[in-house]
Design a protein around this nucleic acid. Structure first.
Length: 380
DNA sequence: AATTCGGGGAT
DNA sequence: ATCCCAGAATT
């Protein structure tokens, strides 16, 4: 097949050949589209590596729309890295409440302390150095290095995986093994040496706005002429082999222990969860969960309430007020909710128990599960 | 290489 | 209901 028979010289050719020949045209097309169509986001156009870092950590496995409010509140409260380093972890977790993956907040906090103590308050600019910070992996290191410091580093996130597997018609799960390694290699070759940060953001923006999981808008894609998947006719086929496991069932039982004063305002007894494991270190209603189909017994629940309340018989807790369902990515929790009214707020022992007024319930470090249970309890 | 970590929006 | 999102750390 001679090249003279080609109607369009820019059509997809041999494996990877166009990349060296037309990398410039590809980058120009993508960046031109990005310059015209990028969304205005709170962390864009700010010349502050700390802000870029915070946004990238919040954006790990989390949608842009969800992050925006959290980011703005965070930057108002922890305006710079020293500010964050000095804050108590309790307050850090409080601002993170509801965002999920709470280890991110702990790592960000630890990393801020490290930046202050070991880097003089200046975030390192090299990806290899950034990666030494807790909570900073290959993606975040590349993102901060390229966006905040202009280092020529690639990024590969879920968007880039999708765009790349389609551009190159790559088979297999891009999240693992050889396929993953190959995509990082491609991303490194593609990144624009002049505008690495914008290029990386453009790839991700393209993935989220045009090259979407379902119903990609190939008709308005700036780089469609380089796309093998489009040429094949079924871009939605990529990425392939990405089946997920369904969440394990889990059963729980908890108790809303409350106290009501003369004016009728309520307060609730909360327990802090152990540091490791699910929702580690967060506050919630006392209770227990087990993997499997069997419900924890009321006895187990009563036993747990013994520490703050003394002896409580199972009969003290009125019959279950129904069930709250909460879905984590890997677990599906059905939680039976009980209630127990006590006469006085007995002083809670130790650091793992506290009383919280109804109005302050949204100001504690907690997960969305607490709010869901409280809501369910109010409605019953 | 597989698992464990949240939560929610889109379909 | 299912998928997956600007992933990282641990086992």
């Amino acid at each position: 097949m001679s090249s003279s028979t080609k109607a369009e010289p820019q059509e997809v050719e041999k494996e990877g050949a166009w990349r060296s020949l037309e990398a410039g045209a590809f980058r120009r097309a993508l960046l031109e589209w990005f310059d015209a169509h990028q969304r205005q986001l709170p962390w864009r156009g700010i010349d502050d590596p700390y802000a870029v870092w915070v946004s990238e950590v919040m954006l790990q496995q989390t949608r842009v729309a969800t992050v925006i409010d959290y980011f703005e509140r965070w930057m108002k409260r922890f305006a710079n890295v020293e500010n964050l380093a000095e804050a108590p972890v309790e307050e850090v977790l409080e601002l993170w409440s509801g965002l999920g993956y709470y280890r991110r907040a702990r790592h960000l906090h630890q990393a801020a302390k490290k930046v202050v103590s070991e880097y003089g308050g200046q975030l390192p600019r090299r990806a290899s150095e950034l990666k030494k910070l807790p909570g900073v992996g290959p993606y975040t290191a590349g993102a901060v290095a390229s966006i905040a410091f202009g280092e020529v580093e690639p990024v590969v996130d879920g968007n880039v995986m999708r765009v790349a597997t389609r551009l190159e018609a790559i088979e297999g799960d891009p999240r693992k093994g050889e396929v993953k390694r190959r995509i990082w290699e491609l991303a490194a070759r593609w990144v624009d040496p002049q505008r690495p940060g914008d290029f990386n953001q453009a790839m991700m923006e393209l993935g989220s706005q045009v090259c979407t999981v379902r119903a990609p808008r190939c008709g308005s894609c700036a780089v469609r002429q380089w796309c093998r998947a489009k040429k094949e006719g079924d871009p939605e086929r990529y990425p392939s082999g990405t089946a997920k496991k369904s969440p394990q069932p889990m059963r729980g039982r908890c108790c809303v222990v409350y106290c009501q004063d003369e004016e009728g305002s309520r307060s609730f007894l909360l327990r802090r969860r152990r540091e490791d494991g699910l929702l580690g270190g967060l506050w919630g209603f006392p209770g227990c969960e087990k993997i499997g189909q069997r419900w924890p017994t009321v006895d187990e629940l009563a036993q747990q309430l013994q520490e703050p309340l003394g002896e409580t018989s199972p009969e003290d807790m009125e019959r279950s007020m129904g069930t709250v369902t909460h879905i984590f990515s890997h677990r599906r929790l059905k939680m039976r909710v009980h209630q127990l009214r006590v006469r006085s707020r007995q002083s809670p022992p130790g650091e793992r128990w506290r009383w919280v007024g109804a109005k302050e319930l949204d100001q504690v470090a907690s997960s969305a599960l607490l709010g869901k249970i409280h809501q369910h309890w109010q409605d019953s």
